[in-house]
Structure formats: C-alpha cells, structure tokens
Design a protein around this nucleic acid. Structure first.
Lengths: 339, 339
DNA sequence: GAGAAAAATGTCGACGTTGTCATGCGTCTG
DNA sequence: CAGACGCATGACAACGTCGACATTTTTCTC
C-alpha cells in the first residue's frame, strides 16, 4: 500500500511536508505543494484513516444503532438524513442493527467503542420508548425517533405527533366536518396517545363531543404481528345511521383499509367520506386514489438534525439534554372535500 | 484510553502476552490467561481496531454503497441481511449513500479506501442496471439487486423476477383463470421485462393468446416521479364486456389501485376479480383486504448471501464472476379464488 | 547589508497493536 | 546427566500518520 513515505520520496520532500499538503496546512510553497500533489495523484495515494486515528484519537465516525422491524420501512429516511449530514461534514458512518436482541446491542456498543467512534445515533424505526444497553459507557449519544426510559440525560429528537394530528384535525374542521371518525393506532406506538390527545383536544375546542366522534381501536399487539381491526372498525363506523363525513386514520397504512371498507360499502371518496392519514408513507399515500391527505413524519429531518446535534454534543457544546421535537407537515392531496 | 500496555502492567505481564490472550493464541498458561482477563475486565479495556488494522492491514470491514430512492423502502431488508451476516461473522459495516450523484459516489469509494475496507457491497434499492464509479480501483465488489453494464467482471446477485412471475401466472392458471389482465411495471425496472416475459410465456404454454390477455402499461417515467396509469388501466380493463377474472399487478403498490378500481366499479375481491401482486411489500400486501397473494422479493437473502459471497471473493476464493439469482417465493393469501 | 522576524521544511518520536525472534524453563530421551 | 525439545513468555521493531520542536531559507526593517 502506498503511504505518505513513498509520496515523500517521489516528491523529494519529507514526510511531514506531505502531511502538511494533505491536511491543507499553511507554510508550504505553491511549488512544493504542486509537486507533492502530483506525486499523490501519480501514486494514487489515499490517506490511511486508521493511522490517522491512532495519532489523533478522533475517528470522525458516528455509529448508528437501529432496530429494524419489518414495519414502517419508510423510516430509512432517518438514515438517509444522517448520511447526508455526515457526507456534507466529512464524517463516516458505522452501522449496526440490533434485530431487537439486547445481547446483540451490547456487543454493538463494544464494537463501536473498539472503533473509537465519536458518538452514537440511536435510531428506532417507530416512535417509542427504549432502553439503550450502553451500560456504564459514556459515548455521546443522541436518540432519534425514540426516548430513553431510564436515562433522562440522553438528548432525543422526535416527531411532533401532537402538532401533526392537531393540524389534521383542524384541517377537517375548517372544511366543515362535524362528525368525524378516528381509528386508533396500536397503543404500543408513542404516537398513538399523542395523536389521539390532539384529536380529542382540537375537536373539543370547537365543541364537538363524544356523540360527534366515532373512536375505534385499529390495531394492537406486538409490532409486526398485531391484531388488525381496521377494516371492521371502518365498516362498522360507516354503517352507523349518522355516519362520519370524515375519518382520521391512525396512519397511512391503515388508511388503505379505510379506503377499501368505504368503497366496498358503495361509498365514494371524498364525495361521501373524506379520509386523512398520518405519516405520509408515500408508497401508500400517493398510490391511493384519490391521493391521501396526510401529515408527513419528518424522518429525513430527524436524521439530519440528529446528526448535527450529536456533532455538537461531541464537540462538547453547551448541550443541555432535552427532547427536541420536529413538526409534521400537513400534505394536502385530494382525499378530503368540504361539506 | 486504556491500552494493551496498561493491561499488561496491571496483570504483570508483557504486552505480547496480553495480545496473545486477546487473540486467543496458544501458549498461555491458564493461570496467566485468567490474570490477564481479569485485568481486562477491571480496566474495561477494549481493543483499538485502528491500531490493529495498521499492523495487520485487514480491516474486517465491508462498505455498503446504496442509492436510496424514495420508492420501495422495503429494500432496506437487503441491508438487514448484510448486517446480520456481518454481525454473525465479526465484520463491521461502513455505510454510505450516493443520493444518485456520481461525484458523491466517487468520493465514497475514496473514503472507503481510506478506511482500507476489505470489500464493497453495491446495493440498489430497485432491480436495475448500474455503472459503478469505482474507476480503476480494485476493491472486491459484489453487486446486489443490480448488475453492472460496463464491467462484466463484477459478480452480482439478483432476484429471480422471471421465476416469480412464472409461479404467479401458473398459480392463476391452475385455479382456472383464463382471461387475465396484466398491468406492466415501469419499463425502467429490470423486473418489468422479465416478469412480463414470464407472464407471456407461461400463458402461451397453456394456449392463451392475445385475446385472452389484457396487457396495459401501469407506470412510466423516472422512478419517484412517474406517470401513473394504473387506476385508469384497471378501470378500463374491468369495464370490458369480457373482463378478466384475474389481474396480475406489476407490484403490490400498484395493486392498491387495482383494488380501488375494482371496488369502485362495485366488483368484489376475490369473488368477481382475483388479484395478485409482486414484491410482497408487506406494508401493503397485508394491509389490503382481502390480503394480497404475491411473490416475495428475496431482499433479506440478497443481502445475506451477497455479504457471504463478498467474503469469499475477499478471501480470494475461486469465485468466477457471475450473476447469481435468488428465487421469489410465492406467498399465498386470500386475494385469489378458483373459477 | 546586518539582524530580526517570518516562512518553509525537516527530524524524531509516539499512538496501540502484532509479527519476529530471542530467551527461560521444565521435561523427555538415550 | 547431557542434549534436545516443547512450552511459556518477553523484547523490540514496525505499521502510517501527525504533533512538537529544530533547522534552514527567505523576506523584511532600519
């Protein structure tokens, strides 16, 4: 492997001068710099990160720990956001997946430490409460899309489920809907409670009461293997004599079933029933016809800003641990009409 | 940071002996070994990979290059497969994403080289032909879910779109369907041609001709921003006097629209129309009611076996470059009935 | 044009690990 | 009991890079 030494030889300078050129340090003549750069090109020299790390003990590497579950694969956008930030800021990304096993997670922390990574982004694929296995380790960590139960000190960055559901509810109310159905998410998800709370509060503010609302449980059980009541709930809801003019679906995926239930009853969307989702899981929201109005989970930004934040923490910034929240943008499509 | 030296001191042995213990080398007394292991535990020593690499120039690290596109996020299963293999075999994963830009891709190769990775897994998020920017570099590479146009020498591992579509078609034929609709994938996707070819050939084998088949284009244009004709195509297809009794949808996502079109016409699934998809994009295939019969893209296996293969290549195995193909398993659910 | 300051370049060692080779010690062989 | 052998351990250098410091060369100042 071609090293700094061979470059130095080729350019007829000392190692240190080559090092200076590589790192853009001052005090190198233009002429020398060019000679060295030519040697680098000619020899195809590429700096050895490992050697660099060993000297400077800063790896410029972040580790990502994920917990892929077969659901909501859209959340890979978090990883994309992280990667984009990392790429723009010269950081490298080491990646590992717990697969849900906590022994494996412990291993991963070890591996990360053995690579002397600067910090960890702990990413969950759905919004939930977790319990990182970092042990007594003190690697700077930022939680993304989740929050630590035990360790209040870890900064976390999460989607604003409340605001998203609030916007969506207001959107329906502004368009004249007064009888609204709501199909609840799996209670395991952190968003379930927040979204429902926002729905209740917002409808309450305009004086809608339990009689105007049809609230049903859509799913429950372990994520990935849940009991699914969405179709039945939607069907039942729409068969009521005073059926809702709009249905808020816990998420976009569940909205598929609401669509199907609605159509199977011979009702039209949005003429007879308006429907909104949540997540902006585009594979679904734009595949549905009419396309689904929904609130976009800010996955990409969660990742991007999480990485940025971690960087501040690593740099020792004055980062008081806290939960940061990113808003969910309402995406207006064509599944809602005014009544 | 606690190093091998401090451990050696604590245990009252030489560096080398500690090294021996760490690497499980022979010629260490049980007694010494225990003493060293105790010191390691007490001090919380974790080996420094960078230093190790600098000596041995084997990083035990694979790089993954992806090209995330906002479509088919389900393909993260490829990455999961890779990670699982890596984890089981003590490899570390470095990850980067091109975002579609080839300058960035070139940078990534550089970065990977600077980490002295052992090999690269070049992963695309949908089955297609690509053109890796590795340049004159000769890092062992395995292509996953794609194939190189220019470099015939790169091994690749791909889903068997042909076999999957064949199985699906046979499945319909065996259940008595003789008038079958087919909605074509975006021709940009490698699978489009293969699946259609399988459909044509398999229907042809049992004597079905153009009159029995309704073949329509579902989508075209750049991935992520394509023109979408699925709903219209399905609607038109089902309005024919001799409407198909079954429709094969290019993929699961498109099947959503076929469902909606079917139901909007007042037809029932599967009583009036049977529907199959492709991909087993579970967020969709199990959210549809009735649940969708489809062929599963073997994403996880693509990743797992790709990593395994790369490992062989790195080890200098007798790996004649070739395209390996992994079958798509038919997943029977309830969207098809016998006629 | 001498002396000082600034710029350019070089020398050397250290980072943490492991490979090479050397050494010490007990055991076996004949 | 001498010599050979096998096991257990250690000393030391080297990997590629960069920081600290030293040295040489150029430029500036009066």
């Amino acid at each position: 492997m071609v090293s700094i030494v061979s470059v130095a030889k080729a350019a007829g300078v000392s190692n240190k001068t080559v090092s200076r050129v590589i790192n853009g340090e001052p005090y190198v003549t233009e002429e020398t710099r060019e000679r060295v750069e030519k040697a680098i090109r000619d020899l195809g020299y590429i700096p050895n990160m490992a050697a660099r790390l060993i000297r400077s003990s800063r790896s410029n590497t972040f580790g990502i720990i994920t917990d892929y579950v077969s659901t909501t694969p859209y959340s890979v956008d978090i990883v994309r956001g992280i990667q984009d930030w990392a790429n723009a800021n010269g950081k490298t990304i080491l990646m590992a997946n717990t697969g849900g096993s906590s022994e494996r997670e412990a291993e991963i922390w070890k591996i990360f430490q053995s690579h002397r990574i600067d910090g960890v982004l702990y990413v969950t694929m759905y919004h939930r409460i977790v319990d990182p296995e970092a042990g007594d380790v003190s690697i700077p960590t930022v939680m993304i899309n989740c929050r630590s139960q035990t360790n209040e000190l870890l900064p976390s960055i999460e989607p604003d489920d409340f605001q998203g559901a609030q916007d969506l509810t207001r959107y329906l109310i502004e368009r004249g809907h007064r009888r609204i159905g709501y199909i609840k998410l799996n209670p395991v998800l952190l968003g379930a409670e927040l979204r429902l709370k926002a729905f209740r509060q917002t409808t309450g503010e305009v004086g809608l009461g339990e009689d105007d609302l049809s609230i049903r449980l859509g799913m429950e059980g372990p994520v990935g293997a849940e009991e699914n009541y969405v179709f039945a709930a939607a069907t039942e809801m729409l068969r009521q004599k005073n059926r809702p003019t709009a249905i808020m679906s816990g998420n976009d995926e569940m909205a598929i079933q609401v669509y199907i239930a609605t159509l199977a009853l011979g009702l039209r969307i949005p003429e007879d029933v308006s429907i909104v989702g949540f997540d902006d899981f585009r594979t679904v929201s734009t595949a549905l016809k009419p396309e689904l109005t929904t609130a976009a989970l800010p996955y990409y930004h969660l990742g991007f800003q999480g990485a940025e934040w971690l960087n501040n923490v690593v740099a020792g910034g004055n980062v008081r641990p806290s939960t940061r929240v990113i808003s969910c943008k309402l995406v207006e499509r064509t599944s809602v009409r005014s009544v």
